[in-house]
Design a protein around this nucleic acid. Structure first.
Length: 519
RNA sequence: GGCCCCGUCGUCUAGCCCGGUCAGGACACAGGCCUUUCAAGCCUGUAACACGGGUUCAAAUCCCGUCGGGGUCGCCA
């Protein structure tokens, strides 16, 4: 039975690299019909864990990465919070002490630091002298009488090598002499990550530890702990990390301003912020950040698109298949298909997937996707009426693939604004209305518009063509002015669709109102 | 600095293990067509085996070295 885990710290947000790790664990597990466990690594935190955990759990669920055991769902090995598992760790520490794989150390932090610096000065690798290691009760008493407190350190081997067969990287060799006597328990009895992680992996019966590459160097000490405790070793698989756009450096939430120099990245951020600003959300990069999954949720990306993109970040099936349903991903995923080199996060490619997925969304679902956005900005009232839904459907239909994320519906505010409150973009006025002859032409056009029957796209188009012929002008000479007058913008969906959706009355009122800007 | 990992178009990648197709696909980019704007669509194009040595009739692929990038060396996780 395959059992894997994802072990986030409650940091308050779900990092894009973290989701990728979670996703690969999940895919691997589902592929093998196993169980995926969510464990919360909160040994360091005390308060606000719930609050800091929520965005992570919500984000995973939103993407459909469901866990079989863990917070909210429980499970046979509960609790799944490390902060609640201290007794397991302490028991393990006791055992390590008994078998001689760990020792009580009475060194003061500054004494260790001094040794470390001395080693550095002499350009030799740091190896702790074990001067304050208590081997007997006698030693312990002596150190304690000096007012010292004990931590527990691993008594690592100082010679020989360790070979790990990593499922992704293959055979990796480590020299024990490079390893330090890591602290596993503090003076106050609390335990540290490596110990906790190994104990839980055992207690939870984890068979495959699939995690990011930065843990590869940590593996020897974890293997040491596991072996000393007599645990069977899990299989290890170290994933390449997700790198910055156009670089090989690990993606980081804090370096966003640097990524913004990348044009494609900046475009996507700009798009997201436009929507967030309309929603009245905070748009500072600290909270609204494309390295964080919530960014995509708020902008209205589709979870399937993100999953598909993320799956291909470091994994591939073959030389051509790019579109995968969730089921296909599960069917085909394998660790052998995972690449070794880091993969740069490319928001533009994610965007391309979003585009493809959005096209495939049926109208009914698209309406559901978009309605919450319209409600949030107050353009439509909460339980949308049939008439509103009808109108939204018309807009979506006419907009077609122009609406790439659910939040893009907010570009079409002019369909919901009262005629006398329509806002005109300065550029629209400048470019399309303030041209000689526009006013008169618009007036004559309005007269025609008043009589079109039925007021539908095809008929409107015919009328427009007749108008152009009669005036002896080109289509472009009138249509841009009409667009500006009726929508207040210079871009948007097909003019005849827009007119039809707005209806005769609105169109006439808006043209009338726009005449004040025209010459 | 020690140790470990990695290195194919700008980006994601296929090919590498089992040497032999103009090194294939996708995103992005450029040009063109279409066009009422935008978006899309269609066509075309630019673009990579990090470098240097071997081995071989033949090397992205095997061997050695160099360089480059990254990770890790905590009483963080």
């Amino acid at each position: 039975m395959v059992r894997t885990r994802f072990a986030p710290s409650p940091t308050g947000y779900l990092h894009i690299g973290g989701v990728r790790t979670a996703l690969f664990n999940w895919l691997f597990t589902r592929r093998h019909g196993g169980q995926f466990i969510l464990r919360i690594d909160d040994t360091d935190q005390q308060r606000h864990v719930e609050e800091a955990l929520r965005p992570i759990l919500d984000g995973l669920r939103w993407l459909g990465v469901e866990w079989d055991e863990g917070p909210d769902v429980g499970g046979p090995y509960a609790p799944y919070y490390q902060s609640q598992r201290l007794e397991f760790y302490q028991k393990a520490v006791q055992r390590l002490l008994e078998v001689g794989a760990a020792y009580r150390d009475y060194a003061r932090p500054e004494e260790i630091q001094a040794e470390r610096e001395a080693a550095q000065r002499e350009k030799r690798p740091f190896v702790y002298s074990r001067r304050w290691m208590a081997e007997t009760a006698e030693d312990a008493r002596r150190f304690e009488s000096q007012g010292r407190q004990a931590v527990v350190r691993l008594k690592m081997p100082r010679e020989g090598t360790l070979v790990i067969d990593d499922l992704i990287r293959g055979r990796v060799e480590f020299d024990w002499s490079q390893e330090q006597d890591h602290v596993i328990q503090r003076a106050d009895g609390t335990c540290l990550y490596h110990l906790a992680s190994v104990v839980d992996d055992y207690e939870f019966r984890i068979t495959h530890v699939i995690r990011a590459e930065e843990h590869l160097s940590n593996t020897p000490r974890q293997v040491f702990i596991a072996q000393a405790l007599g645990y069977p070793l899990p299989q290890y698989a170290h994933l390449p990390f997700v790198a910055e756009p156009g670089s090989r450096v690990k993606l980081s939430k804090r370096k966003l301003d640097k990524y913004l120099k990348n044009k494609e990245f900046a475009e996507r951020v700009e798009h997201g912020r436009r929507i967030a600003a309309r929603l009245g959300l905070a748009t500072e990069l600290e909270v609204f950040n494309p390295v964080v999954v919530d960014f995509y949720r708020q902008v209205g990306y589709l979870p399937e698109a993100i999953v598909n993109y993320l799956a291909l970040l470091g994994w591939s099936l073959d030389d051509k298949t790019e579109m995968f349903t969730r089921e296909e991903l599960i069917r085909h995923f394998s660790l052998e298909g995972v690449n070794k080199a880091p993969a740069s996060f490319d928001p533009q490619k994610l965007w391309a997937f979003q585009d493809r997925y959005m096209r495939a969304v049926p109208m009914e679902k698209k309406i559901e996707l978009v309605l919450p956005y319209l409600e949030k900005v107050g353009w439509v009232s909460a339980p949308a009426s049939a008439a509103v839904r009808q109108k939204v459907a018309q807009i979506l239909q006419a907009a077609g693939d122009r609406i790439k994320t659910a939040g893009d519906i907010l570009d079409y505010g002019y369909f919901f604004t009262p005629d006398d409150r329509l806002e005109y973009e300065p550029g629209a006025i400048e470019k399309r209305l303030r041209a000689p002859g526009v006013a008169d032409r618009l007036r004559r056009f309005a007269q025609q518009l008043a009589q079109v029957e039925p007021f539908e796209p095809a008929m409107l188009e015919r009328m427009m063509h007749d108008f152009v012929m009669a005036e002896g002008i080109k289509l472009g000479d009138i249509i841009h002015a009409v667009r500006a007058a009726v929508t207040g913008t210079t871009v948007g969906l097909g003019m005849f669709d827009a007119l039809a959706i707005l209806g005769r009355e609105s169109c006439l009122a808006r043209i009338e109102r726009a005449l004040q800007y025209a010459v």
